[in-house]
Amino acid sequence: MLKALQLEPEKCTGCLQCEMACSFENEGVFNPSKSRIKVFTFHDEGRFAPYTCSQCAEAWCLHACPVEAIVINPATGAKDVHADVCVGCKVCTIACPFGTVNYNADSGKVIKCDLCGGSPACATACPTGAITYVDAEHTGYERMRAHAAQSLPHS
């Protein structure tokens, strides 16, 4: 089954455990600045929102890459950056409409979410269930269920 990251901002507290898990999984350090998932704080509204690559079916980054360094991982559906091929031209960072592909100056390559090969560390680390890894064809399942519950006649 193809799975996808499901982000539910209303559950997020802004703790950044996901950013640390991501950087630790991918870079071996606790370093939010190297995380592929970012949590945004909307201070005046008192809201938090995690955000990362949604793994577009027709991925702009993949099509823009001149050296075909971004390829579809058949197991996860993720668009993986092959660092040994990437030349750090950053065209993908311009092409991505969502800003979720970014340049890492330390390596001279771009980084983006690759779903950790099918076991995303951010989802494991999230203490509130704001980030989960669910059936890609039923990301609306829990919301549908909540609305279905509202449609029940009063008992």
């Binding site: 507290t13 802004g14 703790c15 950044l16 455990q17 640390m20 509204e45 008192g46 809201r47 938090f48 203490p127 509130t128």
Partner: peptide, 19 residues
């Protein structure tokens, strides 16, 4: 109370965000 908010790395998140 609008929501609770966390400090860095905190899985408790006791902070109060109010209007």
């Amino acid at each position: 109370l609008v929501t609770n908010g966390a400090c860095f790395g905190c899985t408790i998140a006791c902070g109060r965000i109010s209007t």
